[in-house]
Design a protein around this nucleic acid. Structure first.
Lengths: 342, 342
DNA sequence: GTGTGTGTCTAAACCGGTTTAAACCCTCAA
DNA sequence: TTGAGGGTTTAAACCGGTTTAGACACACAC
């Protein structure tokens, strides 16, 4: 059924050379007369020949594909603005190179390490992206022992043999806090993500130290789980405090948007009674009511950089350097406002 | 660097048989004595041998992978609840079979057909999922001519050689309209998706005919684009009408949530002044304020069914039947309410 | 004792590339 | 004339499986 294209042998015959010569010409290896190379390339062109990935895979022991394992509940993943854009950036460097992206979505309950094992064992990919880094992330040792090259998204806290592509979350968080301080807020709370995640603690730490900088203590820190439900519950607890915060900084937009709804449901007016800020600048952030003040990173660039770095590593370049991406930017909207004297 | 596992030859030597015998034993083909099969399997087990799917790929001309091309702006994709869950369902059938999912995200501006061409030319996949079906979808002819098996997500309007896995959008839409009618609404408007998409017109048609059933005309139909911005603009136009609708049915949650914000910004109270309903039941739908009445499908099941069907097709089962999934269910929340006499 | 058949297994070709060792041709120096 | 040496090209092995044709042993019928 599937069209069978011409093979390297067909090209060789047409150009009047051996298979080996065609291979050499295609890969631009020295040792062939220029005239011969031209003739071979012309023949390949006329035949519309493309070397078979499968055959190449077998002989050079490469997959020509990169892997991404997303450990996340599909329901939660759905409103995550990071991955789609990240993947877009990855593809933009993969496509021209003829590489593919193999995706694996693992629910948190399942054995996530099995995902990586499978990718490695089946030789599906030449390397993987390591996202949602956790403290003392066991996947680093796993990948090391599997011999699977990787790039970490942000820097792990332990030792790591892999290059890291980093987008520092702290400047963005600090900017949010400073923005709120300038608006006159003094009782500011944080709704954090699970503290097993490096980026969740990074945001929480940045929050605390930005306040400390101004000689303040957090009004409260609620450790939540990045989900909408989590955001709601944390928000309910915060507004019920004897001395409730006048502003809440959420570790992501999803919790922030849900929290915004919860606050309104509780009878508060945002931003008059409560200022609210998120993190991510997801599509809806701009359009909920009131528009959500948040922090915008560039996941597309992140994907590009990660793919480039991973490819360098795979291509055997030694000493692949870490990459530092420009930090996220504060986006001010209507959900944060000057503290009214009450 | 990468661990080199044992090959079929190692297993053959250990079991004292030929490579061919090992292959036969592994694939459960007849012609081997049971004792021999056991011995071979034992040897394979002891060696921890797994057949290389690169080699298998080459000899049987299969990729052992399925492809999904998503034509969507990454920014828009981000808040799309469908794909992540759909992919989860797909993986649940792929993983046990040792298949992989190759993902390709194409921005609307780019040449989407190139995505399929690339997948086919590179022999990356054995079949693809055809989502976001359009009227007279050119991809059907393209895939036919590429000889790439496919499954369509929902039924195309033209002739199609491919099996379809369907989740009828109409019952859900009709349920929403009936719900609004029961609440006393008579001026109901629809914010539709781009009418090039089959599912967008299906929802619009269902909307119109559900009203007609009750002897009513749509208050208005705004054709939009499934994005938040589009939802806002359509909403603004609707509330500015001389006789504005008392209820708006949006073709997806993203437009509905954004529209909800726009209506509130325009000074309307939802649901007192305006009832609003979405479609998808995205994570945030439950948590915006007020909670969004919407329609919930089951994209995970959709993914499962699509993957199973595509695999049947690839395995050469003849006459693969279309699959009809249970229709979406109405989820009633706070954004729709009884029409107040004013 | 030969012929036919059946069940079991192997050798070798094959998939379509890459890579290595060696052969070939030509030129130039001894 | 012979030999060394460089540039060009090829034949063949190889990657690790699958598949086909045929070899072999043994049973049974004639």
């Amino acid at each position: 059924m599937t069209k069978k294209g011409p093979t390297i042998a067909d090209v060789a015959t047409r150009a009047g050379v051996s298979k080996g010569a065609v291979s050499f010409a295609l890969n631009g290896r020295p040792g062939l007369a220029q005239a011969t190379v031209d003739r071979i390339l012309a023949a390949a062109d006329e035949l519309g020949w493309r070397p078979s990935n499968r055959a190449r895979s077998l002989s050079v022991s490469k997959a020509f594909a990169l892997g991404l394992v997303i450990t996340r509940d599909p329901a939660v993943l759905s409103s995550d603005p990071f991955f789609p854009a990240f993947i877009g950036g990855v593809e933009s460097v993969l496509a021209p190179r003829g590489q593919a992206l193999v995706l694996q979505v693992v629910s948190p309950g399942e054995d996530e390490e099995a995902g990586y094992r499978r990718l490695a064992r089946d030789g599906r990919v030449d390397g993987v992206f390591l996202s949602d880094l956790r403290h003392d992330d066991p996947r680093i040792d796993l990948l090391t022992s599997l011999g699977l090259p990787a790039v970490t998204l942000n820097r792990p806290d332990g030792p790591s043999p892999f290059p890291a592509v980093c987008l520092d979350d702290r400047p963005g968080t600090i900017a949010v806090v400073q923005h709120l301080l300038e608006l006159g807020h003094r009782r500011i709370a944080h709704v954090a993500g699970p503290q097993t995640f490096v980026h969740a603690t990074a945001r929480a730490d940045a929050f605390v130290s930005a306040l400390a900088e101004a000689g303040l203590q957090p009004a409260a820190i609620e450790v939540s789980d990045f989900t909408a439900v989590g955001g709601i519950e944390a928000t309910k607890r915060l507004v019920a405090l004897p001395k409730p915060p006048t502003a809440i900084v959420y570790a992501n937009d999803r919790m922030a948007i849900a929290g915004l709804g919860a606050a309104q449901q509780a009878g508060l007016t945002v931003p008059d009674d409560l200022s609210v800020a998120g993190f991510d600048d997801s599509e809806l952030a701009e359009f909920v009511h009131p528009g959500l003040t948040t922090v915008r990173a560039d996941p597309y660039r992140f994907g590009e950089a990660a793919a480039q770095t991973l490819n360098q590593l795979i291509d055997g370049d030694s000493g692949v350097p870490d990459v530092e991406l420009p930090p996220a930017r504060l986006i001010i909207r209507r959900s944060t406002a000057h503290l009214e004297d009450s």
